[in-house]
C-alpha cells in the first residue's frame, strides 16, 4: 500500500487534475451558454503545442502560456465563424476542430522542429512552481498542493470566480439566459450571438492554459496527440455536472485521483495499457451511473 500512496502520488494529483479542470471550466461556460462544444480535446492539443513553441523561442514560460492562449483563441474564432456566423452544427465543428488540431500540431511539429513524435529541449522554459511556506508544516496539504505550477492555483481560483460570476454578474446572467433560450435575450435587446462569441473566446483562453499546463508545466516537451483523450474526459465531466463549476471541480478531482493512481500502479508491474485504461473506465462508469439515475427519474419513455 505504501508503495502506491507515496509523496509522489499525492503531488501528482494536482498536476494531472489541472489541465482537465481548466479545459472543463472552458467547456462548462460553453455548456451554460448552450454551445455544445465537444472539441476540447483539440483545444488542449493545439494549446500544448503552441506553449512549447512560444516557450522555446522566447525562452520564457510566460510567453509560452501566452502563445498557448493564442492557439486556443484561434480555434475559438474558427468555432465562432462556422457555428455562429455560418450556423454549422456544433458537433461537426467540434469533430473538425479535433482533427484540425491533431493535424496542425503534428504538421507544425515536423515542419518547424524537424522531429516527429516528441520534441523536447532544454531551452523550453517551464512554468514556475510556487512554494507556500505557510502550509509547509501541514504534511498532507504540503504534499497535495504545495510546490505546484501557478496554473494550478489559478484554476482553483477560477472555479470559485466562475461560480460567483455566473450567479451574480450580469454577464453571467446573460450566459445562463442565452443557454436556455437565446430568443429571450434577444427580446431584451441583447445580441445573443455576441454573448456566445465572448463565451467561446473565454473557453479558448482556458483551454489554451490547459494545454500550457500539459506541456510546459512539468515536462517541458510536446508529444504528438499529447492530449490523449483528456479533452473527452473534460467533456463528459461538463455533461455530468450540467456546467456547474463546483460539482465539476469535485468530479475532476476524482478523475485526477484515478489518473494518479493508475500512474502509480504501473510501477507495480501491471501492463501499461491496463493502467492507462483505468481513468476511462472510471469516467465511463460514472457516466453510466449518473445517466441511469437520470433515466430512472424520467417519466417519459424515450425508446
Amino acid at each position: 500500500m505504501t508503495e502506491i500512496f507515496d509523496p509522489e502520488f499525492f503531488s501528482s494529483i494536482a498536476r494531472l487534475t489541472t489541465p482537465i479542470l481548466l479545459a472543463a471550466l472552458g467547456g462548462s461556460i460553453c455548456h451554460r451558454a448552450g454551445i455544445f462544444n465537444i472539441g476540447l480535446e483539440g483545444f488542449i492539443l493545439l494549446g500544448a503545442f503552441m506553449a512549447v513553441l512560444g516557450s522555446f523561442y522566447a525562452n520564457s514560460a510566460f510567453v509560452g502560456a501566452l502563445t498557448a492562449v493564442v492557439g486556443g483563441l484561434f480555434l475559438s474564432i474558427i468555432f465562432a465563424e462556422f457555428h455562429l456566423r455560418r450556423k454549422g452544427d456544433p458537433i461537426v465543428i467540434s469533430i473538425a476542430i479535433n482533427i484540425l488540431a491533431l493535424g496542425l500540431s503534428t504538421y507544425l511539429l515536423r515542419s518547424i522542429f524537424k522531429v516527429s513524435g516528441v520534441f523536447s529541449h532544454s531551452e523550453i522554459e517551464k512554468i514556475p512552481h510556487i512554494q507556500l511556506p505557510i502550509i509547509e508544516n501541514v504534511k498532507i496539504l504540503n504534499l497535495l498542493i504545495n510546490d505546484q505550477s501557478i496554473l494550478f492555483y489559478l484554476s482553483i481560483v477560477i472555479v470559485f470566480i466562475l461560480h460567483y460570476f455566473l450567479k451574480y454578474h450580469k454577464f453571467g446572467l446573460w450566459i445562463r439566459v442565452v443557454g436556455e433560450n437565446p430568443e429571450v435575450l434577444k427580446s431584451s435587446g441583447i445580441n445573443p450571438v455576441r454573448i456566445k462569441f465572448l463565451v467561446l473566446l473565454l473557453c479558448g483562453l482556458l483551454c489554451g492554459l490547459a494545454g500550457a499546463q500539459l506541456s510546459i508545466s512539468n515536462v517541458g516537451l510536446f508529444v504528438e496527440n499529447m492530449s490523449a483523450g483528456r479533452g473527452w474526459i473534460a467533456v463528459v465531466a461538463v455533461l455530468l455536472c450540467g456546467g456547474r463549476p463546483i460539482p465539476l471541480f469535485l468530479l475532476i478531482i476524482l478523475f485526477g485521483l484515478v489518473d494518479s493512481l493508475s500512474l502509480r500502479i504501473q510501477g507495480l508491474g501491471l501492463p501499461q495499457q491496463i493502467t492507462e485504461l483505468l481513468p476511462y473506465i472510471v469516467c465511463l462508469a460514472v457516466l453510466i451511473i449518473v445517466s441511469y439515475k437520470k433515466l430512472r427519474t424520467f417519466s417519459r419513455i424515450i425508446y
Partner: peptide
C-alpha cells in the same frame, strides 16, 4: 409580451424581470 413567454424557467422571477436592465456595480456584479 410574446405569445410564447420570454421567460427562463430555471431562473428566479427577479432575474427574469431585470434581464437586460441590471443595476450593476463597477465590475458588473448585479
Amino acid at each position: 409580451v410574446h405569445q410564447h413567454f420570454m421567460l427562463i424557467d430555471e431562473l428566479s422571477v427577479l432575474e427574469n424581470i431585470i434581464l437586460g436592465y441590471e443595476l450593476d456595480d463597477a465590475l458588473g456584479f448585479i
